[in-house]
Design a protein around this nucleic acid. Structure first.
Length: 646
DNA sequence: GTAGGGTTAG
């Protein structure tokens, strides 16, 4: 151990990286034994606390040790510096619970110490910490202290105050501080620009950016400024502005770091120019995982999954992000099978999945109806004690409902602690699709009573519930309610639902009128619903009209010709039925083979009509044959029992 | 010594 005279050199003041935690622990013991910590006041205690607090940001232990040391000093510190060091470590520590628990007590202890006073370093750390714990009320108190103690002209304090307000308060207040501040530096501008972007106010951010450029003061935009401006531009999706910003930063000597160029790439992707994103990507010579992931996302969003996969394979190292990005791409392209295969690959590569992986995986299960895998995911979440977040809970509800297990969907739904409108919507749609119309409407009422705002999808749920149950009057009410009370735009899907409901119930005139007055061109689903209703109720004239529209919309679709022929046949119009069949042959319309999936032991198998490619084809067909016989037998039994012979 | 920043999911 060094003699006391050299200890202060071992315990550096300021930004120098302190020695490792275990060395400092020994030093602590040494200081205790030699009585150097019991002097009052003692520079050793201050420096020791600061050094320990900052010795290892990755572990919570040093910080806790420093905090307890601070509380147990025989005499209070005579400057704010040990408090500052602890606050500095807290304000940037990764352990949110430590921050939540210790931040404010620490500042209160400083105020109560009597010997130390908050200084110009205390407030930047403290305000950052307040922003991170989202404590509006206490932050406001702290802001009051900065004024009272005369820090209104300290640019570091003002900037930190602006940051706090931009996170926890209002941008108007942050802006006022900016406008009234006697001093501004590049961080002041960046904080405000960044605040606007975080609050989803890109216009204000860009406006401020141009003002910063035009005022042409000593303050010039730097890398952080440009990241803010480019992010704002990405939010607006304005490609022209994006190009201008890109040119600006290249012409004004802004450091083109990887971080900035990644942001530019992301902006080009969001503004719809994969080409420009690609050209930026090719000019980055030290690409990071983020650069590659952004390119994967860019390709995946356009459905270019083969290119996305190629990029994924080419990249030198991968964390969970690129795996999730590629998986999300497969899910969005409705390639659930590939998404699940990728998850298996991910497990083989020993990459830990996170919540987002699970959400994607559940979407894939929903698409495929893969209940077994979905249940495995549920089990995995329980086993690994993953928090049932809103996104995860909602995905689980959706998966169980779409995979046919409405009871499990309801059970999960009840377990989710803070349900939002999306969660309720998933449940309502699930109930509706399972034919539980009354329950779906009941859930809708409960959701409304909780004060939650339904969206367009919620109404698709309730309208389809009405449709399944033939609740015409309720349907009419919901249909007008969504527009009149909730100011939601009625989309194609709502109209098709409503037309289906009216048509099935035999209100063909009302259905036709709705088709004629709807604000968009009716699609195939609308005409299909109308056609179905006409066939059901024997309205041949209107049915023909709907069928013609369907042919117009998709001349290659064989289905409608078949259905039209069936409609004529049912109405005993044999000649017309034959005519349609002849027409089909002339036009060379081919029947599209049907296709289906089945999940077995966690593997999804795909079949098309008359498919013989599966390894177990013979066994499958034998089984199918057996089932068919049994079903016919069962049907006969029912028929017999219903006719009263048995 | 202090303040400001990018990527994944819906």
């Amino acid at each position: 151990m060094p003699p006391p005279s050299r200890l202060l050199a071992v315990l550096p003041a300021g930004a120098v990286q302190p020695p490792p935690f275990d060395v400092l622990l020994k030093l602590h013991a040494h200081l205790l034994v030699s009585g150097l910590l019991s002097h009052s006041p003692s520079p050793y205690g201050d420096r020791l606390i600061a050094a320990i607090a900052l010795s290892d940001p990755a572990s919570p232990r040093p910080l806790l040790h420093a905090l307890s040391l601070l509380a147990s000093l025989p005499s209070p510190p005579y400057s704010a510096s040990p408090y500052n060091a602890a606050l500095r470590a807290l304000s940037s520590c990764q352990h949110q619970h430590l921050l939540d628990r210790h931040c404010l007590p620490l500042y209160r202890a400083l105020l109560r110490s009597g010997s130390a006073r908050p200084d110009h370093l205390t407030f930047p750390f403290l305000l950052k910490a307040c922003a991170r714990v989202q404590d509006r009320a206490y932050g406001a108190v702290v802001l009051g202290h900065t004024q009272k103690l005369g820090f209104s002209a300290d640019v570091f304090v003002v900037n930190a105050a602006m940051y706090f307000l931009s996170v926890c308060g209002s941008m108007v207040h942050a802006r006022r501080l900016f406008d009234e501040s006697p001093v501004r530096d590049v961080v002041s501008w960046n904080t405000l620009i960044g605040g606007y972007v975080r609050r989803g106010l890109p216009k204000e951010a860009i406006e401020l950016f141009w003002r910063m450029v035009e005022e042409n003061t000593a303050v010039r935009p730097d890398e952080v400024t440009m990241i803010g401006a480019v992010l704002g531009c990405a939010q607006m999706g304005d490609l022209q502005l994006g190009k201008r910003l890109h040119e600006f930063l290249e012409g004004n000597g802004v450091r083109c770091t990887v971080r900035l160029m990644n942001t530019v790439m992301d902006m080009y992707v969001k503004c719809g120019s994969l080409e420009l994103a690609k050209s930026v990507f090719e000019r980055i010579d030290t690409r990071t995982v983020v650069s590659w992931t952004t390119m994967i996302v860019g390709h995946a969003r356009l459905g270019l999954m083969e290119d996305a996969r190629r990029l994924f394979d080419e990249m030198p190292e991968r964390d969970v992000f690129p795996w999730n990005a590629l998986m999300a791409g497969y899910v969005q392209s409705k390639k659930g099978k590939e998404a699940i295969a990728l998850f298996h690959e991910m497990q083989e590569a020993r990459v830990d999945p996170n919540e987002i992986t699970m959400v994607n995986l559940l979407s894939a299960c929903s698409q495929l109806g893969a209940l077994e895998i979905g249940m495995w995911v549920h089990h995995y979440i329980d086993k690994h004690h993953l928090y049932l977040s809103l996104a995860l809970g909602t995905s689980l509800v959706d998966m169980y409902a779409k995979c046919g297990s409405i009871k499990k969907a309801i059970r999960v739904f009840k377990e989710i602690p803070d349900k939002n409108a999306l969660t309720w919507t998933a449940m309502i749609c699930g109930l509706a699709n399972h034919g539980h119309a009354v329950e779906a409407i009941e859930y809708f009422q409960r959701m409304i009573n909780l004060g939650l705002q339904p969206d367009e999808i919620t109404f698709i749920g309730v309208l389809s519930a009405c449709c399944h149950a033939g609740l015409v009057e309720e349907g009419r009410q919901f249909f007008s309610l969504m527009h009149a009370k909730y100011h939601l735009e009625r989309k194609m899907k709502h109209y098709s639902c409503m037309i289906d409901l009216l048509g099935r119930a035999g209100h063909l005139d009302e259905a036709e009128q709705l088709v004629n007055t709807m604000p968009m061109d009716p699609d195939a689903v609308v005409w299909g619903a109308l056609f179905f209703a006409c066939r059901m109720h024997g309205n041949i004239t209107l049915g023909e009209k709907a069928a013609m529209k369907l042919v117009e919309l998709d001349p290659g679709d064989s289905g409608i010709y078949v259905l039209l022929a069936n409609m004529y046949a049912e109405a005993n119009m044999r000649k017309k039925a034959d005519k349609v069949r002849v027409m089909m042959r002339h036009l060379g319309v081919e029947k599209v083979p049907g296709c289906s999936f089945i999940e077995l032991n966690g593997v999804v198998h795909e079949f098309i009509v008359k498919d013989k490619s599966h390894l177990d084809t013979n066994a499958i067909y034998a089984c199918l044959h057996e089932i068919t016989i049994q079903m016919k037998h069962a049907a006969n039994m029912i028929e017999i029992s219903e006719t009263g012979i048995m």
